[in-house]
């Protein structure tokens, strides 16, 4: 079966700076793939290409078998590609409820969104009318994940879910990822620190200097990781 997300020979960057130099990556349907790599390898850039925020200067991006190089991020989002970018991906000056209401742009009903989000994260229900910017970092990330839960996407792209969060919260968030995967959502998680991601992943890829240097099962990659990272230094 064709992979749900596939990058073939993708190069991309910012203006004159090329960051990805020919990336090949395939996310199989229903899989959870961990994308690992050192700082500045281009992981976030890769997610931006996949979600339509940056256009690939060469190569092809396929989502669900369709060629989507020129598609806009909002069109992709409405088509079922949910992207949670780096940092807190919520609107700080909107209430929790308004944040959730905006999730309905991806094509869910408002009542369903509130129901799903508040069931899974009761802490959000308590703070429904509070500004999202006044939530703790973990609660903000829950709010972001609530969007993934409630909109029922086909593909979920997550960047640095664990950034700056306590291990307990990280575990809770990854449980949500695992739950989504069990429901059939294909997931690509980008992580700096491998352990949490590899625990839920069934595939892994390592990006170094804008190229995918290894792909394989999580265990193989975990064993090789130190070598791959160190190899990147030379």
């Amino acid at each position: 079966m064709k992979p749900i997300l596939e990058l073939v020979g993708v190069t991309a960057g910012y203006g004159r700076i090329e960051v990805l130099h020919g990336v090949d990556l395939a996310l199989p349907r229903g899989a959870v793939m961990a994308l690992l790599g050192p700082n500045g390898a281009g992981k976030s850039t890769l997610l931006k290409v996949a979600s339509g925020q940056i256009r690939a200067t060469a190569g092809h991006v396929h989502v669900g078998g369709a060629h989507v190089n020129g598609a806009s991020p909002d069109a992709l989002a409405r088509a079922g590609l949910c992207t949670i970018p780096e940092g807190r991906s919520v609107f700080p000056n909107l209430t929790v409820r308004d944040n959730l209401r905006l999730s309905t742009y991806a094509g869910a009903r408002a009542a369903d969104v509130y129901g799903t989000a508040f069931d899974r994260f009761p802490r959000l229900a308590e703070r429904a009318n509070q500004l999202a910017g006044s939530l703790s970092g973990g609660e903000q990330q829950m709010l972001a994940m609530a969007r993934a839960l409630a909109t029922n996407p086909a593909v979920l792209l997550v960047d640095e879910l664990s950034m700056g969060l306590a291990p307990l919260v990280v575990r809770e968030l990854y449980e949500v990822v695992a739950g989504l995967a069990a429901d059939g959502v294909s997931v690509l998680v980008v992580e700096q620190f491998a352990d949490a991601a590899l625990a839920v992943a069934d595939r892994a890829a390592v990006l170094v200097h804008g190229r995918v240097v290894a792909t394989g099962g999580p265990d193989e990659i975990a064993d090789e990781l130190a070598n791959l990272y160190l190899g990147s230094v030379t």
């Binding site: 749900i4 078998g65 989507v68 069109a75 088509a79 079922g80 590609l81 593909v155 294909s186």
Partner: peptide, 14 residues
């Protein structure tokens, strides 16, 4: 560019 013709919805496995 509008919505690409994506056969994405319901493309999950099970």
């Amino acid at each position: 560019s509008g919505t690409p013709a994506l056969p994405l919805r319901g493309a999950g496995v099970n």
